[in-house]
Nucleic acid binder design. Structure first.
Lengths: 162, 162
DNA sequence: TTATTAGGTTGCATTTTGCAAGTTATCTCG
DNA sequence: CGAGATAACTTGCAAAATGCAACCTAATAA
């Protein structure tokens, strides 16, 4: 399951390069969790609504770490826990994330309230500045709540207790 | 290989919704080809540098069509050929694509010239307007050339003639 | 009319994902 | 202090997605 070495680059295109790191169903979701929800622990990611399996979660966190998008440090207050945090490179994905969010809200059916989306569209710079500020100050306050979804999401997969 | 039906939505989050359509290694690359390079045919996608297999290409084009991101029409000038084209929903991904491109250029090693990237960063609106104009007028002139890559790319996979 | 080209399909091997259960090292509470 | 909980994994196995090479059909070109 572990990622071996650096796979070959497919082309010199920046979009292609970005997709080699982020082009799967989970990576950007984890980045979203850290960026807009202030999540930091394995547990939080696991329960964040879409139901990622724990082995995949481990793999993705390692991979993001290997690519310098995430850093890992033991939690000060609990020796069992580990804090994952975006690096500068990771938080720099905020503009792309914001555009993706706006696109999704416009073109797919989601639980995002129109008013919220509209506000973000009209205040892109301010939203990004606030996102960056929270990252910098390690302020875990979510930019956005998890849009309803939480309520009707199924239990997370990949770890059932006996 | 064919996509059966609409899979269940994982959550009400717009980012999640977007990633359900685009969260794989190829879809956004095809969209890039159509959006910034003006590619329209199966062949062009197949030779676009990253080496997608023909069965996967078929699958992804169908999938994008099923999600209303791409339309399909027979080419007027050649009965064998088919033109794939972004829909309004598809071209609306331009801002996200641009941000991803800028991020990739800054944070990964690519063949994109700094000057070009810098220009795009400082003229986002103009670049987007031009992208949209070309789409609307069906102007196939590429916004950006394929950044070197073409030269050293391997031959496409998945179709070898006897 | 024969060869070539566009856009596929098919079969099979490899890789990646998903699922459930097990493991280890901390905590927390009585 | 000892008996659970908890956090973060790991493991084994099955299922799905991907990659590869070859083959196919319709339309065009020489």
């Amino acid at each position: 399951m572990a990622r071996k070495s650096i796979p070959v680059r497919r082309s010199g295109c920046p979009v292609s390069a970005a997709l080699e790191l982020l082009g799967d169903r989970w990576s950007l979701l984890l980045i979203r969790d850290m960026m807009v929800r202030g999540y930091r622990t394995f547990r939080e990611f696991q329960h964040s609504g879409e139901g990622i399996a724990s082995n995949i979660l481990t793999d993705r966190l390692r991979r993001l770490e290997a690519h310098g998008i995430v850093t890992v440090e033991p939690a000060a207050e609990d020796g069992r826990s580990i804090h994952y945090r975006l690096t500068e490179k990771g938080i720099a994905l905020a503009p792309a994330m914001l555009e993706l969010l706006i696109w999704g809200a416009h073109h797919e059916e989601t639980d995002a309230p129109c008013a919220v989306i509209e506000h973000m569209e009209q205040n892109r710079a301010a939203v990004l500045a606030e996102t960056y500020r929270r990252w910098k100050e390690r302020d875990p306050e979510p930019i956005l709540p998890p849009f309803q979804a939480q309520a009707k999401s199924k239990a997370p997969k990949g770890t059932r207790r006996r």
